[in-house]
Design a protein around this nucleic acid. Structure first.
Lengths: 232, 232
DNA sequence: TACTTATTGTCTCAATCTGCGACAATATTA
DNA sequence: TAATATTGTCGCAGATTGAGACAATAAGTA
């Protein structure tokens, strides 16, 4: 235990994925006056479930409850212990070091990824950060510590889980077109898929409900809208 | 930090799988004079990688280096915090409570599963335990805390990874027959597989090297022996 | 030595799944 | 009314899969 009521040595980091309509993006925070970029993370209260701590942090950063969230790895190498970095951040924020000395200890970080609907999020920085913004997964700033490794592993896990967990729909609004869903898959896998094959495959799962057509005003046949149907 | 040089609040538990020739088994420890059964676990030293801590523990329990090891989940609910259980174990071992009070704190446990060759292991209990034995995965004793959940999740992860990671060979000796490999798959998946289809599938991967035949003395055609070939 | 038995390696066949191109059916603009 | 860009779907060839069948053994047995 410690004065702030947080568990020592334990942190979490979150890779928050969103889909802009074109590209896969993640939320990155920038600390005041340091030039340091980092994944949104936080600590676990003494009387709080690890999973709940992450949901709490996600709610603060995105405003969203009830997010698709998956834990994927605990990063625990000694190499990631660099107290001088945390010291830099705290000094840049005029925080009293002695009061927060537990922050300079070694941490093991449990990493989660979240899938959210890009459109209904207003990224919100925390007290130590001056921004919290979307970045393309293949055009990230220099992340501190091992946060780039964390992102890479998140992406790999997401790819591995793509079919098993029908993950794609969590990145889209309630109603979406088949083309949009395909673009999500392509962004995650990093490769083009054949249109006919993709449509056949997805429809054969029997998990989508077809709605009215979407008349976009473009000069061509209007696509159907779909929603994800949780079981039958 | 603390007197013993271990990180507070962080533990690991390991689900160590072995294959007896018939059934899938895991190593379970029993604590002195308590009737409590548990997964082999341990703590992380201040200057030690999390992964290394687990390998160190595995080496102590099995005598094996260089084990197939996979981290699969960090268990961090508050519900798993039951200091009275740890107190029971320590009292039964005449340990001084005040000296080890950090053991009564809340822990987040990072769970790993290991795959080892059943035959070349001599299970070794630690100081607090009076036994360390193999149990059938579907005939386990009553495990303390959430250790049954940990086993279930380990099995699920193992199943999910079975194809992606060619996991089966880690549970067999260097040389094995196709039938033995099939029995490993069947034990993990919990279902029978068709012989011809299995053989065709495995061979098509091109990862096995065929050796001389194994003359078992039984009255029928002798099977080939195979070994796993790491890449070409 | 010839016959029997259990098991193995492989093949075949049908059913299913996949990759890829093609075609007709739209919405809208010109 | 024609032109254009996209969409929903189909058909086909090739690959994969599930299930049974058959010949080839290694003993044991008569």
């Amino acid at each position: 235990m410690n004065p702030k009521g947080y568990l020592k040595h334990i942190a979490y980091d979150s890779v928050i994925f969103g889909f802009s309509g074109e590209k896969l993006k993640i939320l990155i925070m920038k600390y005041h006056n340091t030039g340091l970029f980092a994944l949104p993370g936080g600590f676990v209260k003494n009387d709080e479930d690890l999973n709940d701590a992450v949901r709490r942090g996600l709610k603060e950063r995105t405003g969203l409850d009830d997010i698709y969230l998956e834990q994927f790895y605990a990063f625990g190498s000694v190499a990631r212990y660099k107290p001088e970095i945390m010291e830099t951040i705290m000094k840049a924020n005029n925080q009293a070091l002695e009061e927060h000395s537990w922050l300079l200890d070694r941490f093991i970080s449990v990493a989660y990824y979240a899938l959210i609907n890009y459109e209904d999020v207003v990224p919100t920085p925390d007290a130590l950060s001056d921004s919290c913004d979307w970045y393309d997964v293949d055009d990230l700033p220099n992340l501190m510590l091992d946060h780039l490794d964390i992102v890479k592993k998140a992406l790999q896990t997401l790819r591995d889980n793509l079919e098993r967990k029908l993950v794609g729909t969590n990145l889209l609004p309630q109603l979406f077109t088949m083309k949009e869903l395909q673009m999500v898959y392509e962004a995650i896998l990093g490769e083009k898929l054949h249109r006919g094959t993709f449509q056949r495959k997805i429809l054969s799962l029997g998990l989508l409900k077809r709605h009215e057509k979407q008349y976009s005003g473009a000069a061509h046949k209007a696509p159907f809208l779909y929603s994800f149907e949780q079981k039958k």
